[in-house]
Lab assay of single mutants.
Amino acid sequence: CHSECLGNCSQPDDPTKCVACRNFYLDGRCVETCPPPYYHFQDWRCVNFSFCQDLHHKCKNSRRQGCHQYVIHNNKCIPECPSGYTMNSSNLLCTPCLGPCPKVCHLLEGEKTIDSVTSAQELRGCTVINGSLIINIRGGNNLAAELEANLGLIEEISGYLKIRRSYALVSLSFFRKLRLIRGETLEIGNYSFYALDNQNLRQLWDWSKHNLTITQGKLFFHYNPKLCLSEIHKMEEVSGTKGRQERNDIALKTNGDQASCENELLKFSYIRTSFDKILLRWEPYWPPDFRDLLGFMLFYKEAPYQNVTEFDGQDACGSNSWTVVDIDPPLRSNDPKSQNHPGWLMRGLKPWTQYAIFVKTLVTFSDERRTYGAKSDIIYVQTDATNPSVPLDPISVSNSSSQIILKWKPPSDPNGNITHYLVFWERQAEDSELFELDYCLKGLKLPSRTWSPPFESEDSQKHNQSEYEDSAGECCSCPKTDSQILKELEESSFRKTFEDYLHNVVFVPRKT
């Protein structure tokens, strides 16, 4: 048989008469490798580009789960590009990614509803959504962080984005990388972005840091009482949809009607710091009717980097990364020049730590249904340095008659930039024990000054392991946590139920 035959053949030295091919099969003959313009397919066939392209389009058009959109890589027609490569849609070739590779997620039936953290986790790592997304989240724990972890990498949506009755959302900033909504599939009414009845939605994105392009379709905003109209108009300008909307697409009466839409800028007039305090004062603000001013709200939190936005980490279910302080308005003076500047002394802060701070007014709604208010920009203030805590785990070892090696770990709280350490030492008198000992005694162990690591005695271990207080009263049991108490109650309830079950099964009433 021919060298490319495997198993047997019907005619000697003829690659077209093989029972099976050793390498690849091409047009009725066995070959060692697939010549151009053919590609290896499933490690035994040679196919042309049209064959591989037909497989790709067949799966793409069917949208069946589990099928493969075949691509070409290293002269092979394979189910998908290997790690580190992405497909070129024009020629199906796998090309190296520039940075992290995109991950295209194809949605069944063309859309997916995100109504819980669990459903959001199914899209973790996706960068391109081939379909439409509907966000409908009523509640949950730590929602802002969970949504950002699972949806934060999405850069492109081919269909539309719909935010509907998501009472738990305060902001859409968890879509931190969303840059493009194509609108290839539109919501009824030709809408590519749809926001309806979101009672706590206050911000779409921080438009000073976020760009969003909507290729096709219109915007729809109705019944978002805490979303200011200025935020919607800003989205029109940034996304390129200005002029597409009709009169009733953006409701003037049901958007922002319960919001404090600040239209003035508060400026800080005085800032002073110490290692654990920050004193702030800002310019006074009074609405047209000074009785509408209820006070100020001061927001602050630790910020290692200057990239904080107002609604980071917030949701309507209680999660809030900001510390909020309510401040009463100052006494009002008739003389504008003698107006008191409101302020606040922030206490209990960490030394040498940068804080993000902003302040906003708290006002009631005027009778004319106009909203007044003022808010400052987010500023960054760093507390002063102070003395560091003591170095940890000092170790001293003498390696000769004239040297001592000293080692330690950095302090747990540096409280500033540590530039150097101060080492103090003092000579001590020799131990009298060394002169009084009889060095001729056998088995004498000389006193040693070398360091030995501390260890816990058996008594201390027994005390720590004991669940009861000892007789001397030195140790006591740790208080039980809520989960331990709940577990004990469940076990007790189970024992009672099981005992009742045994009584009912074992003891049967005697027939009379």
Rank of each mutant, 00 (worst) to 15 (best):
Y305V: 12
N307A: 13
L123A: 05
K267T: 11
I379G: 04
P284Q: 15
V170G: 15
S321Q: 15
P284T: 11
A144S: 14
L161W: 00
G140S: 11
P330L: 07
D289R: 09
Q339V: 08
L331N: 14
S116G: 15
V238C: 13
L196D: 02
N255K: 05
I135E: 00
L362P: 05
E246Q: 13
P288S: 11
H210A: 06
P342Y: 04
G159P: 00
L362N: 05
N136S: 06
S132A: 10
S173P: 02
A120G: 11
S402M: 08
C228I: 04
Q121F: 09
G189L: 15
L362C: 01
I327N: 01
D289I: 02
Y300I: 14
I163K: 03
F193H: 01
D289F: 04
N255G: 05
A120T: 12
F221N: 01
D326F: 01
E246Y: 13
D326C: 03
A385K: 11
T353A: 05
A303T: 14
N334R: 14
F290K: 05
I357A: 06
G159S: 06
T185S: 10
W205T: 01
D315M: 07
W205H: 09
D276A: 10
V363R: 03
I357E: 00
K407H: 03
E122V: 11
G159L: 01
K409P: 04
R179T: 13
L204P: 02
C228A: 06
H233L: 02
L227P: 00
R370W: 08
S208L: 14
L298Y: 01
P329E: 04
H106L: 07
I378P: 02
L349H: 00
K226S: 06
I188D: 02
L178S: 00
L212N: 01
I163S: 02
F358C: 01
Q314E: 15
L107A: 08
L133C: 01
D335H: 10
W286H: 04
P330M: 05
F299H: 14
S400G: 07
N340W: 12
N142D: 11
K162L: 11
S401P: 04
G243W: 03
T241D: 10
I157P: 00
T273Y: 07
I135L: 04
E146G: 15
L204A: 14
N307R: 02
I395K: 10
L108I: 08
S319V: 08
Q306E: 11
F296S: 13
L204N: 04
P304H: 04
L266M: 07
H222T: 04
D206L: 06
T215H: 09
V397S: 14
A120S: 09
Y372S: 06
G348F: 05
L280R: 00
E236A: 11
D335A: 12
K407V: 13
V128S: 12
A374V: 06
L201I: 04
D312T: 10
T386Q: 04
I357Q: 00
L252S: 13
E262T: 10
V381Q: 14
N198P: 00
I154Q: 00
L362E: 09
W352F: 07
L279H: 15
V359I: 11
Q203A: 07
A149F: 15
S389H: 06
A144D: 03
L143V: 14
Q403F: 05
K103H: 02
F311N: 13
L161Y: 01
R202G: 15
I327A: 07
N150I: 13
T213Y: 07
M346H: 02
T118L: 03
S119W: 02
Y223L: 13
E246A: 04
P394D: 05
F268A: 01
K360Y: 01
A259Q: 12
T309S: 15
Y191K: 08
P330V: 07
V308N: 05
S333C: 08
S173D: 07
L266Q: 02
I163P: 00
I114Y: 06
R281H: 02
G140A: 15
P351N: 03
N307L: 09
L294R: 04
F296D: 03
P288F: 13
E231N: 03
V324Y: 09
I232T: 15
K267V: 14
S376W: 00
T361E: 05
Q339D: 10
K253V: 11
V390R: 14
T213A: 06
S398L: 02
E264L: 06
Q245W: 05
G189N: 15
E187N: 14
S274W: 03
A303L: 03
N263L: 04
Y305I: 02
A356I: 09
S400H: 13
F193G: 00
A251Q: 08
S132R: 03
G152S: 03
E368T: 12
Y167M: 13
Q339N: 14
R244V: 05
T361R: 05
S402T: 14
R244I: 08
Q245P: 12
K103Q: 14
S132Y: 01
A195Q: 02
W282N: 01
S402V: 15
P410V: 02
C126G: 01
K226H: 05
D326P: 05
P330T: 04
T113Q: 15
Q306A: 14
N190S: 08
P394W: 15
H106R: 04
S400L: 06
Y191R: 13
A145W: 03
S166V: 11
Y191M: 05
G240R: 07
W286V: 04
D384V: 13
G131R: 00
H210Y: 15
S401T: 09
N141Y: 15
V363E: 06
Y191L: 05
L204K: 01
F311I: 07
V325C: 14
K103P: 08
I181R: 00
K267N: 09
A195L: 09
S401D: 05
G243Q: 13
V390P: 15
Q203R: 13
H222A: 07
Y372L: 12
L266C: 03
L201C: 05
I114C: 06
T127I: 06
E109S: 14
I135S: 00
V324C: 08
K360H: 01
T213N: 04
G343S: 07
V324T: 06
P342A: 11
I134K: 02
S116L: 05
S376R: 00
S171Q: 14
G295F: 15
W205A: 02
N224W: 01
W344P: 00
R369G: 04
E231L: 13
E302T: 07
S132V: 03
N130L: 13
P336H: 06
S274I: 02
F290D: 14
T309F: 04
H106C: 02
Q245L: 06
P391I: 04
Y355T: 00
Y305T: 11
F193P: 01
D312V: 06
K253F: 12
E283I: 03
E109L: 06
Q245I: 07
D384A: 13
C228Y: 07
L169W: 01
N387H: 13
L169H: 08
M297S: 13
H233D: 13
V397L: 06
Q199A: 06
T215V: 07
S239H: 03
D292N: 12
R369Q: 08
A356S: 08
L180I: 15
E156Y: 07
P394S: 11
I154N: 01
E146R: 09
L227Q: 02
D328N: 15
C105W: 00
D257V: 14
N211I: 13
I134F: 09
N200K: 15
I379W: 06
Y372N: 13
N255M: 08
E146P: 09
I232S: 02
L123F: 09
V397G: 14
I214Y: 03
N320Y: 12
Y300T: 04
S274M: 13
E156W: 07
E237V: 03
L331Q: 15
L169P: 06
D328R: 09
L123P: 01
L392T: 03
Q216V: 08
H106V: 09
R179C: 14
G373K: 03
L294H: 13
K253G: 08
I250D: 09
Y270T: 00
Q306K: 09
Q339G: 14
N340V: 15
R291C: 15
K103M: 03
E302K: 09
A356T: 04
L229K: 09
P304E: 10
T273V: 15
A120R: 02
E302R: 03
K234S: 09
T215L: 05
K337T: 14
Y194E: 13
W282C: 01
S274V: 03
L219M: 12
S173Q: 06
A303S: 10
L180A: 12
N211L: 09
N399M: 15
S166I: 09
D206Y: 04
K177P: 01
A259W: 08
W286C: 15
T127M: 09
Q258I: 02
A251R: 06
G348H: 04
P391M: 04
Q216M: 13
F221A: 10
D393G: 01
Q382P: 02
N320C: 12
R291I: 13
L153P: 09
R138P: 13
N387M: 12
N399S: 11
S171A: 05
M297D: 11
L392A: 04
Y355R: 00
I157Y: 00
K209T: 14
H341S: 13
F290S: 12
K301S: 10
G110S: 10
I188Q: 06
G140Q: 11
I395R: 15
K162M: 03
T254G: 12
F311H: 10
S319P: 06
V324F: 06
T309Q: 11
K234T: 14
E237S: 04
P391A: 06
W322M: 03
